[in-house]
């Protein structure tokens, strides 16, 4: 008798195990939901993990205010269908309240501000574990991340002194004021995520599929023209046929020229890709250890 399951089934089973451990080990967990494909897959797995009961934690969106309208529509429909509670941490509100100051100029990014709002929203809600869709294959600092990643009372990560994580035994114990980040998709690659979306027939925001829109090229990156992108005099918007490989803040997520209109097309494209999906993220290009620095400070 041959009892084996495919690697996708193994990844699914592992993620569901992590989600259940999180629900069991923490008093008040919350799941980060950005409307991107990774958080969509994670939320889909949460549905599976607790079915036929509802997911026993709320979803949280850290809203930079720089959203593609398509993402917001998708988010609201998804959460409604799931019957989950949505918590919103708003970067715009924090700016308006004078708690944080926005970077200025055309290349300003709200990424740093996102961390502040994330930590504040976690603290206000008393959440002791935040699940995120981060994958180790995304970036070299992420490759070092644990499934259960400890954060001190300032929300900081200490990469040199992480708890050893053995077998499938997870230690989520913490002191008052500390919290954990949990990454159920740690072992997934971009390809795994796409294959899973296809196998499970999970609907996605339209941005992931090829479409025509006004774009500009800045520092070699194709940026969609949206209400929140400040145009410079030299920027000349042009109609391009593009799709997004990741969806984040609309001001720092680059698009790719692509005619991939179906999941099959996308998978073929991912298989042939010579750039990582974060290759189009302006925020990672700021320095060699930009991601590690942001993560240490509490970023996802």
């Amino acid at each position: 008798m041959n009892y084996t399951i495919t690697h996708l089934k193994q990844l699914e089973s592992e993620a569901i195990y992590i989600l259940r451990e999180t629900a069991a080990q923490f008093e008040k967990p919350v799941m980060l939901f950005s409307g991107g494909k990774d958080s969509i897959v994670m939320a889909h797995l949460a549905k599976k993990a607790f079915w036929p009961a509802k997911v026993p934690f709320p979803l949280m969106h850290v809203d930079t205010g720089h959203n593609f309208p398509e993402t917001m529509e998708y988010r609201d429909a998804f959460i409604k269908e799931m019957g989950a509670k949505l918590v919103i941490g708003s970067v715009q509100d924090a700016i308006d309240a004078g708690k944080i100051k926005e970077e200025s100029g055309a290349r300003a990014s709200r990424n740093g501000l996102q961390t502040y709002v994330l930590l504040e929203t976690l603290e206000e809600g008393g959440y002791d574990a935040a699940m995120g869709g981060g994958r180790r294959d995304e970036e070299k600092a992420r490759a070092k991340e644990r499934f259960f990643s400890h954060r001190n009372e300032f929300g900081e990560w200490d990469p040199k002194n992480q708890r050893p994580e053995l077998w499938n035994v997870f230690n989520g114990r913490k002191h008052f004021g500390e919290h954990f980040r949990v990454f159920p998709l740690s072992n997934w690659t971009e390809m795994d995520v796409w294959q899973y979306i296809m196998a499970e027939e999970i609907p996605l925001p339209s941005l992931y599929f090829s479409h025509e829109r006004d774009c500009i090229i800045r520092d070699g990156v194709i940026m969609a023209v949206t209400d929140c992108l400040e145009l410079l005099p030299e920027d000349v918007p042009e109609k391009m046929t593009v799709r997004f490989r990741t969806i984040g803040d609309a001001t720092c997520t680059g698009a790719n020229l692509s005619t991939a209109a179906t999941l099959e097309d996308i998978i073929a494209e991912v298989a042939a890709a010579r750039q990582t999906e974060r290759g189009t993220r302006a925020d990672d290009k700021r320095s060699e250890t930009a991601m590690e620095d942001r993560k240490k400070a509490g970023y996802f």
Binding site: E139, A141, K144, P159, Q162, T289
Partner: peptide, 15 residues
């Protein structure tokens, strides 16, 4: 991938 690893040219944590 960590800053400390790149500075010292050794591996500190599992990647």
């Amino acid at each position: 991938g960590l800053k400390a690893e790149r500075e010292q040219g050794i591996t500190i944590d599992v990647a």
